[in-house]
Lab assay of single mutants.
Amino acid sequence: KYFGTAKARYDFCARDRSELSLKEGDIIKILNKKGQQGWWRGEIYGRVGWFPANYVEEDYS
């Protein structure tokens, strides 16, 4: 189950295995919004990890 999707506004390079690298334009499935302050958990291309919420724009459609 996921909470919708978000589109990456910027590139983000994961610093460890718990984080999710993003490329601008990627569409991420949002799995959890209750991580550390400002971090969401998501899935993209079969990978799961945490990413900074301010790097994405949530899709409300």
Rank of each mutant, 00 (worst) to 15 (best):
I44K: 09
S21M: 08
F12E: 00
A6Y: 09
G46R: 04
D59Y: 09
R9M: 13
K33V: 06
E43H: 00
I44D: 05
K23C: 09
R41M: 14
N54L: 09
C13L: 13
T5Q: 08
R17T: 13
D16Q: 12
A6D: 03
A14F: 02
W39N: 03
V56Y: 07
I27V: 15
D11I: 03
D16H: 14
R17C: 15
E24C: 12
L22T: 06
R41G: 03
K1V: 09
K29D: 09
G4L: 09
R15W: 03
V56Q: 00
P52G: 00
S21P: 07
R15G: 08
E58K: 02
I30P: 02
D59M: 13
V56N: 02
W40E: 01
W40V: 04
V56E: 05
Y55W: 10
L31P: 00
N54A: 14
F3W: 11
A14Y: 07
A14V: 01
S61N: 05
W40L: 08
K34M: 09
Y55T: 10
W39Y: 13
R15Y: 06
Y45L: 14
R17S: 15
F3C: 12
Y2A: 09
K33G: 03
I28Y: 04
K1T: 08
G4D: 12
K7F: 05
F51Q: 03
E24V: 14
R9E: 04
K23A: 09
A14C: 02
G38I: 01
Y2L: 08
A8W: 00
R47W: 01
Y2N: 15
V48T: 15
K1Q: 15
D11C: 09
L31N: 04
Y2P: 10
Y55R: 11
Y55F: 09
V56C: 06
R47S: 08
R41Q: 15
K34D: 13
G25F: 02
G49T: 05
I30V: 14
R15E: 04
W50S: 04
G38M: 02
Y45S: 15
R15M: 05
L31A: 02
S61H: 14
K29N: 13
Q37D: 14
G4T: 12
Y2K: 07
K23V: 10
T5S: 10
K7W: 06
A6H: 03
